[in-house]
Amino acid sequence: MSDWNLRLDDTVDESIKLAANRGLAIAAEYVLGESNKVIPIEEATLMRSGSVDRDPANNRVSIFYDVPYSVRQHEDMTLRHDPGRSAKFLERALSDHETIKRIIASAIRGEI
């Protein structure tokens, strides 16, 4: 899966770090929502297992699906899915870098 990082230098003002962490959390929720729009769905168990874990001390968030078959559903391109649903659901949602950056920048500017 993709790994997308935002690193904040230790010299950055604490209020900016807090705002950036808030923006990162909002962006992660956005990515999870976008991923859920195309996630393979049969009984919605996989989708309901999606979550965002925040680690503000290290300026990190994790977006994950917590069922045993989530990696296979994400990685196996040979699986058949309903129309509009596909593998690589999280990776595709993460590829929208511009929206993710705009969300974080808006939080830093205090707009959200």
Rank of each mutant, 00 (worst) to 15 (best):
2 S>D: 08
2 S>T: 03
2 S>A: 07
4 W>V: 11
4 W>E: 08
6 L>E: 08
6 L>W: 14
7 R>T: 10
7 R>V: 11
7 R>L: 06
9 D>T: 07
9 D>K: 08
10 D>E: 09
11 T>A: 12
11 T>D: 14
12 V>Y: 06
12 V>T: 12
13 D>W: 10
13 D>R: 05
13 D>E: 11
13 D>G: 06
14 E>P: 02
15 S>Y: 09
16 I>H: 09
18 L>Q: 12
19 A>K: 10
19 A>R: 13
19 A>E: 09
19 A>C: 06
19 A>P: 01
21 N>D: 12
23 G>P: 14
24 L>D: 02
24 L>S: 07
24 L>A: 03
25 A>T: 15
25 A>S: 15
26 I>L: 14
26 I>H: 07
30 Y>K: 04
31 V>C: 05
33 G>N: 07
35 S>W: 04
36 N>Q: 10
36 N>E: 02
36 N>P: 04
37 K>G: 00
37 K>S: 04
38 V>G: 00
43 E>M: 00
43 E>N: 01
46 L>D: 01
47 M>C: 13
47 M>P: 03
50 G>K: 01
51 S>P: 00
51 S>H: 05
52 V>Q: 11
52 V>H: 10
54 R>D: 09
55 D>I: 15
56 P>D: 09
56 P>H: 04
58 N>V: 05
59 N>Y: 09
60 R>T: 07
61 V>H: 05
61 V>R: 01
61 V>D: 03
62 S>E: 08
64 F>T: 03
64 F>L: 08
67 V>N: 02
68 P>N: 04
69 Y>K: 02
70 S>P: 02
71 V>N: 04
72 R>I: 14
74 H>M: 12
74 H>Y: 12
75 E>L: 11
76 D>M: 14
76 D>H: 11
78 T>E: 13
79 L>I: 13
79 L>Q: 15
80 R>S: 14
80 R>K: 13
81 H>G: 01
81 H>C: 03
82 D>F: 10
82 D>V: 07
82 D>M: 12
83 P>H: 05
83 P>D: 05
83 P>W: 07
83 P>K: 07
84 G>Y: 06
84 G>C: 11
85 R>V: 04
86 S>Q: 12
86 S>I: 07
86 S>W: 03
86 S>R: 09
86 S>A: 11
87 A>Y: 12
88 K>G: 05
89 F>V: 04
90 L>C: 00
90 L>E: 00
90 L>R: 00
92 R>D: 06
93 A>C: 07
93 A>W: 05
94 L>S: 00
96 D>P: 11
97 H>Y: 15
98 E>C: 02
98 E>A: 15
100 I>H: 03
100 I>T: 01
101 K>H: 14
102 R>Y: 12
103 I>R: 12
104 I>H: 09
105 A>R: 13
107 A>N: 15
108 I>Y: 07
109 R>W: 15
110 G>A: 01
110 G>Y: 06
112 I>L: 15
112 I>W: 11
